[in-house]
Structure formats: C-alpha cells, structure tokens
C-alpha cells in the first residue's frame, strides 16, 4: 500500500521568484480581476494582451512551462470541443470552407480560437495561484479578505484558525494512517480483494482507529491551547505577518490597468471580433 507516499496538500511548487514572494492577499485579488477581465475581453487584440500578461507572469514565476501544460491536460478535449463547436455554430464573416450542408465561416474560426484561448488562460492563471502560494499563506490571505464579512456574522478568524490547524495536521494524520494500515496488514487484514461492499467494509479497521486518534489529538491540542491562554481572534498577533511592498502594489496596478483597457475595448467596440473579419 503505497498510496500515501508522496502525497502533498495542494500543488505548491517551491521556487524563489518575484511571484512567489508576492503577498497572498494581492495575488488572490489579482486573480479575481484577471478572471473578470478574461470574461470582459471582446476580441483578438484583448485576448492576445491577456495571453501576453499570463505568459509574463508565468515567466516571472519561473514555474516550468511543462507543469502548466500538465494542468491543462484534463480539459484538453473540452478545449478542442469548444473550438469545434464555435467554429461550426458561428455564421458570420465569409465562407472559408463548404461541404454539402457543412460550412465554416471566418467568424467561426476567430471565435473558436478566442473561446479556446479563454479556457486555457482561465485554467493556467488560476493554477498559477496555487502553484506559487502555500496553502497556509492563502489561508492567511483569505482571513484578511474575509474579515469585512465579520459584520455579517462570519467569524473570519475562527475560520482561518480551523483551516490552519487542519492543514498543519494533514501530514501528521497521513503518517498515522500509514502506521495503522501497516499494523492491520500485519494482523492479516486484506484491503485488495472481494467485491465493492467487501472492500468498503475492509476500510473500517483503518478508519475507526484513525478517527479515534484524531479525536485524541483534538483533545490534546485544545488542552495545549488552553494552557497558553488562547482567547480567540481579538488582539491576536501572528508569528509570520503578511507583508505587502512595492512589488505587490505594482502588480495590482498593472492588473487594474489591464482590466480597464479590456473594459474600454469592450465599450468602444473597437476590438469586437466581428470588426476583425
């Protein structure tokens, strides 16, 4: 049973780059703006600009291009499907190719490529966030970004605390699960034969001790927190504060500018894809 070896939470790819060093809060904000800009983009010029921006960010992050491409693999056929559907369903521009009832218009090709590109950019830029930011940093960032919702009754601090503890203990529980699996195998437990029901049943000797050990850990941890006078979010300080600097403000400003450009292009209709036919 090697299914637990090499399991990591998230997709974080540790490197030393400008993008890795950016403040998680800014990165989350920038992703939001990028996704909105992507859906605002109206024509080939806008898409090329967004693609260039994404390429620049990927280059700055030093993440190997292979890894980004690997992330696109699962949706490869959706991208292909999008391309084909838009190509055949759009009836604008001039006819490029015709065969009995089927015809391809120039508008269809332009639109198909645009939509395919949108999916590629959407996936690669969102995966870039989790590739360059650790889950713990992301949690800290989310805590800050969600804190305005405290007024609506969302306990942002408790939420982040819970997530941080959980993320911290996943590797511990993985080790625990590994031990339990080995111990039960040594007693002759068999996890790999029988039908579906038999296999589901064979999990009980693993899951029950795992639950019990998690309960016990929760108890110990609560005791430890009590002993150190944990009293919730008010006035609590952090060991590692999120720090924002020039880099972050620069990144965010560029992102906002790109978005405003997309908006202008869309409103003026200068870059509408029909205008390119």
């Amino acid at each position: 049973m090697n299914m637990l070896q090499g399991v990591t939470i998230g997709q974080y790819y540790p490197l030393d780059s400008q993008i890795h060093k950016m403040d998680a809060r800014f990165k989350i904000g920038m992703i939001f703006i990028y996704v909105i800009a992507l859906f605002t983009a109206s024509g080939p010029f806008a898409y090329s600009l967004l693609a260039l921006f994404a390429l620049a960010v990927i280059a700055l992050s030093k993440i190997p291009f292979k890894i980004i491409l690997k992330g696109l693999k699962p949706i490869l056929w959706i991208i292909g499907f999008t391309l084909i559907l838009h190509t055949f369903s759009t009836k604008e521009g001039f006819i490029v190719w015709q065969w009995s009832r089927f015809s391809i218009y120039s508008g269809g090709i332009v639109r198909g490529i645009m939509m395919g590109f949108r999916l590629i950019l959407l996936l690669s830029i969102t995966s870039l966030l989790t590739l360059t930011t650790t889950p713990i940093d992301l949690t800290d960032g989310l805590e800050v970004l969600l804190s305005p919702f405290k007024k609506l009754g969302l306990p942002a601090h408790e939420l982040a605390m819970m997530m941080t503890i959980a993320l911290r203990f996943v590797p511990t529980l993985i080790e625990e699960a590994d031990k339990i699996i080995k111990a039960q195998t040594a007693r002759g437990a068999d996890f790999e034969s029988g039908g579906f029901i038999a296999r589901a049943k064979s999990l009980i000797p693993i899951l029950v001790p795992l639950f019990i050990s998690a309960f016990r850990r929760a108890d110990d941890l609560a005791m430890a927190m009590e002993a150190r006078c944990y009293r919730g979010g008010e006035n609590r300080t952090k060991m590692k504060e999120l720090k924002s600097g020039k880099r972050d403000y620069l990144g965010l400003s560029v992102m906002v500018l790109v978005f405003l450009l997309m908006l202008t292009l869309r409103i003026t209709g200068f870059d509408s894809w029909q205008a390119w036919l």
Binding site: L4, E158, M163, I165, R168, L173, A214, A218, L221
Partner: peptide, 25 residues
C-alpha cells in the same frame, strides 16, 4: 475546558481527516 476552543480543535481535526480521505480517491 472552554467550549469554543474544543469546537475549534475538534472541527479542525475532522477537517484534516476529511482532507486526508479526499486524497484516497
């Protein structure tokens, strides 16, 4: 024991367990 702390640690541990089990796809 303070109830809020117990809730935090217990649910955090259950979250960790849920995350772990989601790896066993």
């Amino acid at each position: 024991m303070q109830k809020q702390v117990a809730f935090l640690t217990q649910s955090a541990m259950m979250l960790a367990l849920a995350t772990l089990l989601s790896f066993f796809a």
